Simulated assay, not measured.
Amino acid sequence: MRTLTATHASRGFSDLLDAVENGETVRISRAGHVVAELRPVTPTTGRALREALARTPGMDDAFEDDITAATALLTTDEGDPWRDA
């Protein structure tokens, strides 16, 4: 893994993105301290999301009722209260 200064990274940003796109992880330093790390994005799929959600515990009844009540408040058409003032 290579480390670039922020100045060098900004001057060669396109080349930096090419390197990351090709699988390289690059650290960016400023004033001698590493402040960022650029790495390729891990692709995600709908299948991965469904699997993650399947491992997540469901909502309890009280929380589900709160969500339903809050959603009802958002979808109720009460008109514009500022127009009637």
Rank of each mutant, 00 (worst) to 15 (best):
G32R: 07
E78M: 10
L4D: 03
D18C: 04
S10H: 07
R50H: 04
E64C: 13
A62G: 07
A9T: 03
L53F: 14
P43Q: 03
G23W: 05
F13L: 15
F63V: 13
R83S: 12
R11S: 10
G12M: 05
N22E: 14
L4M: 11
D60S: 04
T5E: 03
L53N: 13
L4F: 14
R83A: 15
A72H: 11
F63G: 08
H33M: 12
A70S: 14
P81M: 01
R47I: 02
S10C: 12
A9G: 08
T44F: 06
A19F: 05
T25C: 11
T56H: 12
M1Q: 12
A52T: 09
A31C: 00
T5Y: 05
R2L: 11
A54C: 06
T76I: 12
S14W: 00
V34M: 01
I67P: 04
D60G: 05
R30W: 00
S14P: 01
A54S: 12
I67L: 15
G23M: 04
G32I: 00
H33Q: 11
D65F: 06
T3I: 13
A6S: 10
G23A: 07
V34S: 05
T44V: 14
A36I: 01
T5V: 04
H8C: 07
P43I: 01
N22A: 15
M59G: 10
G32M: 01
M59F: 14
V20L: 06
S14Q: 15
F13T: 13
G46R: 14
T44N: 10
R47G: 07
T71A: 08
L4P: 03
F63N: 10
D15T: 13
A31W: 00
S29H: 01
T56Q: 08
F13R: 15
D18L: 09
D60R: 09
D61M: 05
A31L: 02
R27F: 02
R30G: 07
L4C: 03
L73S: 12
V35T: 09
A48P: 02
I28S: 01
A52I: 05
G46Q: 14
P43G: 06
F63W: 08
D66M: 14
R11C: 05
R27C: 03
R27S: 13
A6M: 10
L74E: 05
E64F: 15
P57S: 06
A72F: 08
V41S: 08
R83G: 02
A70L: 15
M1V: 08
V20H: 02
R39C: 00
T5W: 08
A72K: 09
P43R: 06
L73R: 10
R50T: 12
A69Q: 11
E64G: 09
T42K: 11
A52K: 07
T25Q: 11
D15E: 14
F63R: 10
D60Y: 01
V26R: 09
E37D: 03
R83P: 01
D60L: 03
